[in-house]
């Protein structure tokens, strides 16, 4: 990289790179200290809890957790609530279905042997087969021992003359 004093220095590139590096260093440090709240749909999701307010006001109590300026919008929190409802309903349906199926199976007298599921290997593409074949050539070659040609005297062409 040219020095900062060179005539054609790429000024902007250098400065921007430096700035970006320092910002990312700070960001990484913050993440390490846990100052970034995880995305909301994680385990520590606050959805369903009292909605956050735009600003935590000082109320005398000691501050627990991290203070952040990021808030859930009203729309987003409504959506999260709605989705949770759907998820719960889906789970219930699935359980019910499973029970039904089991009951059906028990009712009918067919008792099947446990079916061995044949796992079909994913079909290799032609290029991969070719690659494998070529790899085998490389591997065969590397295990090949030294071949000494001692059967004959070799080949000589020409003779002791420049012409």
């Amino acid at each position: 990289m040219p020095s900062r004093n060179s005539i054609n220095k790429p000024k902007d590139t250098i400065n921007q790179a430096r700035k970006r590096a320092s910002v990312s260093r700070k960001r990484a440090a913050r993440a390490r200290n846990g100052e970034f709240a995880p995305a909301r749909s994680s385990e520590a999701s606050t959805s369903g809890l009292p909605k956050s307010t735009a600003l935590a006001l000082y109320n005398g109590a000691s501050q627990s957790g991290v203070l952040t300026t990021k808030t859930l919008s009203k729309k987003r929190s409504q959506k999260i609530e709605r989705n949770k409802k759907y998820i719960a309903r889906r789970k219930l349906d699935e359980e019910r279905l499973l029970i039904d199926a089991q009951a059906n199976a028990e009712e009918s007298m067919h008792v099947d042997d446990e079916v061995v599921k044949q796992v079909e290997e994913p079909k290799k593409s032609k290029i991969n087969t070719i690659k494998d074949a070529l790899w085998s050539v490389i591997e065969d070659r590397s295990t090949e021992s030294l071949i000494v040609d001692s059967t004959g005297e070799g080949t000589t062409l020409g003779g002791p003359s420049f012409f």
Binding site: D149, G154, T156, L157, G158
Partner: peptide, 12 residues
């Protein structure tokens, strides 16, 4: 195009 004087260890 007479070949120059060369010798190889290999042969036909």
């Amino acid at each position: 195009s007479k070949p120059s004087w060369v010798h190889s260890n290999y042969q036909l």
